[in-house]
Write a protein that binds this DNA or RNA. Structure first.
Length: 448
RNA sequence: CGGGGCGUAGCGCAGCCUGGUAGCGCAUCUGGUUUGGGACCAGAGGGUCGCAAGUUCGAAUCUUGCCGCCCCGACCA
């Protein structure tokens, strides 16, 4: 992509309303624009990141055996009357009426609808187990939206729903999502920690919040250092094999958010050198709730001996749009974003320091071509701006690598390659830059 | 939902108290000089002062109502 054709409205000054780093940087880097309280337009740069995150989530869901579908944003109120939540949900639900005065709502979640869909199409234990997910915009009319996309009213969420014949089978589905989530966040460069959350009507231990560690996270978290160091299952993990052992590894250690934290228990369970107090952001939540909706909505399946039982369900959410903010919170500095390769809007920024100079232009064009041919996503700054402005802008948008080509380096047949994460630069011979950088990109993407 | 604050050019702000021709910096456009880390000179364009009503000869400024947004707290993917 040539910067001259891209739309990148960067801001030199910080908008007054942005309090935290990710919000500030997303506005400054031209990723989003606020259109109302907690409502954002995704500009081209932000949209690219959002789609990358969405795709990683999708791939890991598919690997775990979930199937993708798409439910509407607008739902009829009657569906929610069946579960009793139409009245219970309160003002967080955005209620609307259509031209015929039918009561509708902009979905804050989809348990009712998926239950209705499932009961219409599955009747027997032979139809189980099933996991279905979609990635769709939700709306919750939060009293106080804040922190940009981290706590918006409209947000993009992946929600998966599992259907099983009994609780034991339900636990297996739960474990699949548990592992899938560890892998999903790891691929984005994030260290996520499953923390025990409030349990449902079933009780037990089948609800976890996935917390990403970030210095500027919204809540304080406490955990055993050993949980942070546990290896995440590889991509060829057998989702139909034994997952319980792995899940147990993660759940035996102490890990709690501040509202569930018990200092005495923490000190008893974790020895001195292993106690971690940090800050975190909730990016996922998995939850087994049994027959809460299948009871209320009569979603039953026949067992092998011919009885009808309500189906056992769980739901599993990932805050896709929130992750954009969470990743920035985890990876930024005073100059801007520092995207992990897997979610970077472009892999590489190519800076032409003297647009109009025949030699520099030719070198840039050639490199732009060969990198693109090698499958590298390049943002080529071919604008007539000054060097300093280009450097600052490229640092702000935070592409993992920058290649700088100007008359000075060109005299020696060299280009400069800068790594955004730590600022390290090296001079590379011009005819080797393409291969060199393509390899750096490929190596960074090797984990998937 | 309780408490506080702010709406003046694309962004950041001053002006309001004490009513009298709407300003500054950045950004944008033109010309020139510059050009390896957010340049300089000269000039130009851009504002129903959130909306409405009221007071007044006269309202960005005073009064009332409404709308929008932000912050702290309680709540939450």
């Amino acid at each position: 992509m040539r910067l001259s054709t891209f739309f990148l409205p960067v801001l030199k000054e910080t908008p007054a309303e942005a309090q935290i780093a990710s919000h500030r940087l997303m506005l400054r880097a031209g990723m989003i624009r606020q259109e109302g309280a907690g409502i954002y337009a995704w500009l081209p740069l932000g949209h690219r990141v959002l789609k990358k995150i969405e795709q990683i989530v999708r791939e890991e869901q598919n690997r775990a055996g979930a199937v993708e579908m798409l439910m509407p944003t607008i739902q009829p109120a009657d569906l929610w009357r069946e579960s009793g939540r139409y009245d219970a949900y309160g003002k967080e639900m955005l209620r609307i009426t259509d031209r015929s005065d039918r009561e509708m709502l902009y979905g804050p979640t989809n348990e009712e609808m998926i239950t209705e869909i499932f009961r219409a199409g599955a009747k027997s234990y032979k139809d189980l187990p099933k996991m279905m997910y979609h990635i769709q915009w939700k709306f919750r009319d939060e009293v106080r939206p804040r922190f940009g996309v981290m706590r918006g009213r409209e947000f993009l969420m992946k929600d998966n729903y599992s259907f099983d014949i009994d609780e034991e089978a339900g636990r297996k589905s739960y474990n699949k999502m548990f592992i899938a989530y560890l892998r999903t966040f790891e691929r984005m460069g994030l260290k996520s920690i499953p923390m025990r959350a409030d349990t449902g009507p079933i009780g037990g231990d089948l609800s976890h919040e996935f917390i990403v560690l970030a210095d500027t996270g919204e809540s304080a978290v406490f955990c055993d250092k050993r949980i942070v160091e546990l290896p995440v299952p590889p991509k060829d993990v057998d989702f139909d094999g034994d997952l319980q052992t792995t899940v147990d590894q993660f759940t035996t250690y102490y890990a709690a958010t501040d509202e569930k934290h018990d200092e005495n228990e923490f000190e008893d369970a974790v020895e001195d050198g292993n106690r971690v107090s940090a800050r975190g952001i909730e990016v996922g939540h998995i939850f087994f709730f049994g027959t809460k909706y299948s009871d209320a909505m009569n979603a039953v399946v026949a067992t092998p001996d011919g009885k009808e039982v309500p189906v056992q369900m769980g739901s599993y959410g990932v805050g896709v749009s929130r992750l954009v903010g969470a990743i920035i919170e985890a990876f930024h500095d005073g100059d801007g974003c520092k995207w992990p390769m897997a979610v970077a809007p472009f892999h590489v920024g190519l800076i032409n320091l003297k647009v109009g100079d025949a030699e520099v232009d030719a070198a840039c064009e050639k490199l732009y071509q060969s990198l693109s041919d090698a499958g590298v996503d390049v943002l080529y700054d071919n604008t007539p701006a000054r060097g300093g402005e280009k450097f600052a802008r490229m640092d702000l948008i935070g592409l993992p690598y920058q290649i700088v080509i100007g008359p000075r380096g060109l005299k020696d047949g060299k280009a400069e390659v800068k790594r955004r994460s730590d600022g390290e630069r090296e001079e590379i011979a011009l005819d080797q830059v393409s291969d060199h950088v393509a390899k750096l990109v490929q190596d960074a993407l090797a984990y998937n």
